[in-house]
Computed example of a mutant assay.
Amino acid sequence: MSDSNLHQNTSEDQGVPSGAPATTGTAPAPENVPGEGEHKSKTFTRRSVLAMAGCGVAGLVVGGVLASWGVTSKSIASGRIEIRTTPTKMIVTDRARCSGCQRCEMACTLKNDGRVCQHIARVRVWPNYNFGTNVGSTDGAYGNCEFTVEHCKQCEDPACMNYCPVHAIYADEKSGARKVDADRCIGCGMCSQACPWNMPVVDSETGVSTKCISCGRCAEQCPNGAIKFIDWEDIAQKVIDQGVVRTTTLVQA
């Protein structure tokens, strides 16, 4: 791509579509020129901006873009920090900050179900509270007191959606999160069985499966800042502000 094809974006160029492409890869190829004297422009999405700089999550860590959220190569290597990317969010969980208070579980169910019910919470601390993910992990109350915060991974190819016999799980057009259609769901529990982490759970009161919709309520209510929901748009703007990559619009001459 020549320098003549890259132009600095104006503020209105920076709107970001709801769809989010993969975090790695190259910029899209130019479309065919429609005619003499005409041109087309394509504004890059938040993830495309990062991909152009060769950023992915590793690049964001090395470049220090995520440092303000406590994310460093050392913290990731130690297992203290986990980063999970979703269609429109980056979720950073800091196990060292988690006190095991389960406020995230309470906030989640209050917002989504109208009651406090640990069993159906979309974010979970309690199942691994004592021993971590397994007895030998040294985490949890009986280990180093670093608690595991589990949440839906919003998989690109979700097993819960693939194995639902009535196609009750779908990708939300705006957020990209996998949601459950309560009117379709028959409460069979196949989604929970198919998920490697058993994240969807059937609510015994409603007979409908529950799962994370990336609403971010758990992060808002965490008193220690152990969970952060970061918009891809914010991350893209930060790499621009720090000079890692500039905002660009592809223009065909």
Results as ranks from 00 to 15, higher is better:
residue 198 N to H: 13
residue 60 L to P: 11
residue 79 G to H: 12
residue 123 V to H: 05
residue 18 S to P: 09
residue 132 G to H: 03
residue 218 C to D: 01
residue 135 V to Q: 06
residue 244 V to A: 12
residue 152 C to E: 05
residue 132 G to A: 04
residue 197 W to P: 03
residue 247 T to V: 11
residue 65 V to I: 15
residue 103 R to Y: 03
residue 30 P to C: 05
residue 7 H to G: 10
residue 240 I to V: 15
residue 171 A to V: 06
residue 214 S to L: 14
residue 193 Q to N: 07
residue 11 S to C: 01
residue 61 V to R: 10
residue 114 G to M: 10
residue 121 A to F: 03
residue 120 I to C: 07
residue 131 F to Q: 09
residue 68 S to H: 12
residue 241 D to E: 15
residue 78 S to T: 09
residue 125 V to W: 04
residue 84 R to P: 00
residue 115 R to C: 06
residue 130 N to P: 02
residue 241 D to H: 10
residue 214 S to I: 03
residue 191 C to W: 02
residue 219 A to E: 07
residue 91 I to A: 06
residue 117 C to K: 15
residue 203 D to C: 02
residue 125 V to D: 07
residue 6 L to K: 15
residue 204 S to E: 12
residue 118 Q to H: 09
residue 102 Q to I: 11
residue 136 G to P: 00
residue 28 P to V: 02
residue 8 Q to K: 13
residue 112 N to W: 05
residue 72 T to Q: 15
residue 171 A to H: 12
residue 52 M to N: 14
residue 172 D to W: 04
residue 47 R to F: 06
residue 220 E to I: 08
residue 74 K to M: 05
residue 235 I to L: 06
residue 60 L to R: 10
residue 81 I to P: 09
residue 147 F to G: 02
residue 15 G to C: 09
residue 31 E to K: 15
residue 67 A to C: 05
residue 200 P to C: 03
residue 226 A to W: 01
residue 123 V to I: 14
residue 132 G to W: 02
residue 142 Y to L: 11
residue 153 K to H: 14
residue 97 R to L: 09
residue 157 D to R: 12
residue 60 L to G: 14
residue 1 M to K: 09
residue 90 M to K: 09
residue 155 C to N: 07
residue 188 C to E: 01
residue 154 Q to C: 04
residue 46 R to L: 07
residue 132 G to K: 02
residue 45 T to S: 13
residue 153 K to E: 13
residue 82 E to A: 11
residue 113 D to H: 15
residue 40 K to T: 14
residue 108 C to V: 10
residue 212 C to Q: 04
residue 185 C to V: 00
residue 168 A to Q: 00
residue 160 C to E: 01
residue 188 C to S: 01
residue 208 V to C: 06
residue 145 C to G: 02
residue 91 I to S: 05
residue 170 Y to M: 00
residue 183 D to C: 02
residue 133 T to P: 03
residue 218 C to K: 02
residue 36 E to M: 13
residue 215 C to E: 07
residue 102 Q to D: 13
residue 172 D to N: 15
residue 84 R to I: 06
residue 68 S to Y: 07
residue 240 I to S: 13
residue 190 M to S: 06
residue 148 T to W: 10
residue 168 A to W: 01
residue 178 R to I: 10
residue 88 T to H: 13
residue 130 N to V: 10
residue 136 G to E: 03
residue 215 C to Q: 08
residue 78 S to A: 15
residue 39 H to A: 10
residue 7 H to Y: 12
residue 55 C to N: 11
residue 72 T to M: 06
residue 241 D to G: 09
residue 127 P to A: 04
residue 224 N to L: 08
residue 155 C to S: 08
residue 224 N to Y: 14
residue 140 G to W: 01
residue 227 I to V: 07
residue 205 E to P: 05
residue 101 C to T: 10
residue 239 V to G: 12
residue 208 V to T: 09
residue 197 W to I: 09
